[in-house]
């Protein structure tokens, strides 16, 4: 049996295909970005995302095979994101995977996108020491989970409303910044003074998150200001977000016996979050596991690596869209 999985990820606005082996070595990872498609809307337009996927999926598969110099016969299985995500986007990836699997006579497994994110920290090198506390912060999700191993996961708390990445994007739009808002807001924040006291929702209430109140507060502040200083607004907003994320992570790390603290998802690319997380880990003497920034955002290498977990457990999930998957699901 070969040791290579083809991963396909189309849950949102990136068409991604990768070839990965069971050690997490990435043989190729190709991502066709749709930033230009959605920039004009300040967010993701699902129908346009799906249209872009259908145009780019096969060239992306082909490019991934070429870059890795791998023939289809060398692939053990195909792992494809089955959810959560945008249904119209998921359908393109799933049905492409089904067609490839049939033509190449390969097993096709439907993978939980969230489990892919959790495995992203082990791409290219083993970084996570278990048990671990994991903070997933992305455009679609925000939660803390306890991982006894790479497959035994307990959800500790998630957002009750908006994800942190979505909040970043919306605040970015309020500040007149391009989509995606995260990196632009962080850059602007680095030039400002966090002088505005924005709320920290649910700060002292368990491990759940809430960001809609913070977002509304930023909007009200901008509306009420005659001459808003955008750098200071960004800096104050980022400070609020960081305090929430770090305080919740601190509570989780104190409550569970973790050897490492893992941060994944697009917001893990935030320099402010990386700096604050480093401080926290040092304070608690816990290993900090941060995947390289290019593995923090959606990619197919993480889906391919997660596929090995499913193969090892003989967990052959059908490639059928499932929009309501949680981190506890396979």
């Amino acid at each position: 049996m070969s040791d290579i999985v083809l991963g396909i990820e189309t849950s949102c606005d990136d068409t991604a295909v990768a070839l990965v082996n069971s050690n997490g070595q990435v043989l190729s990872s190709v991502i066709s970005s749709q930033i230009d498609v959605h920039n004009a809307y300040g967010g993701i337009y699902p129908e346009f995302a799906a249209r872009a996927h259908i145009l780019s999926i096969l060239p992306t598969v082909n490019e991934a095979l070429l870059r890795a110099n791998i023939k289809p016969e060398q692939i053990e299985a195909i792992g494809v994101t089955r959810g959560p995500g945008l249904i119209s986007s998921l359908l393109v990836g799933i049905n492409t995977a089904v067609g490839l699997g049939l033509g190449w006579n390969k097993k096709v497994i439907g993978i939980n996108h969230l489990r892919g994110h959790l495995r992203s920290a082990d791409l290219e090198q083993q970084r996570v020491e278990y048990p671990a506390i994991i903070l997933l912060v992305s455009g679609g999700h925000t939660f803390l989970a306890y991982m006894e191993s790479s497959v035994n996961i307990k959800l500790l708390g998630s957002t009750r409303d908006d994800s942190v990445g979505e909040t970043y994007d919306k605040v970015g739009r309020m500040l007149g910044l391009d989509y995606p808002g995260g990196p632009a807001v962080d850059r602007l924040a680095s030039k400002g003074n966090p002088s505005i006291s924005f709320p920290r929702p649910l700060l002292k209430t368990g491990l759940e998150f809430s960001f809609s109140g913070l977002k509304s507060s930023v909007s009200r502040y901008i509306d009420s200001c005659k001459k808003p200083v955008y750098e200071d607004i960004a800096a104050s907003f980022v400070q609020s977000v960081m305090e929430i994320l770090i305080k919740k992570s601190h509570l989780a790390l104190k409550s569970y016996p973790a050897k490492s603290f893992v941060i994944v998802g697009g917001v893990a690319a935030s320099p402010q979050l990386r700096a604050e997380a480093a401080k926290l880990s040092q304070e608690l003497n816990i290993q900090l596991s941060l995947p390289p920034i290019h593995w923090s955002t959606d990619n197919a290498a993480m889906i391919a690596l997660a596929t090995f977990d499913y193969l090892n457990l003989s967990m052959f999930k059908e490639p059928i869209p499932e929009l309501q998957l949680t981190i506890s699901d396979f």
């Binding site: 799906a50 996927h53 119209s88 359908l91 393109v92 049905n95 089904v98 067609g99 033509g103």
Partner: peptide, 19 residues
């Protein structure tokens, strides 16, 4: 139906490619 059409085409394209 846009999603339905893409479902069939994604499958048709990838099966043709793989064969």
């Amino acid at each position: 139906g846009t999603s339905r059409v893409r479902t069939g085409i994604a499958f048709a394209n990838s099966l043709a490619y793989s064969l």
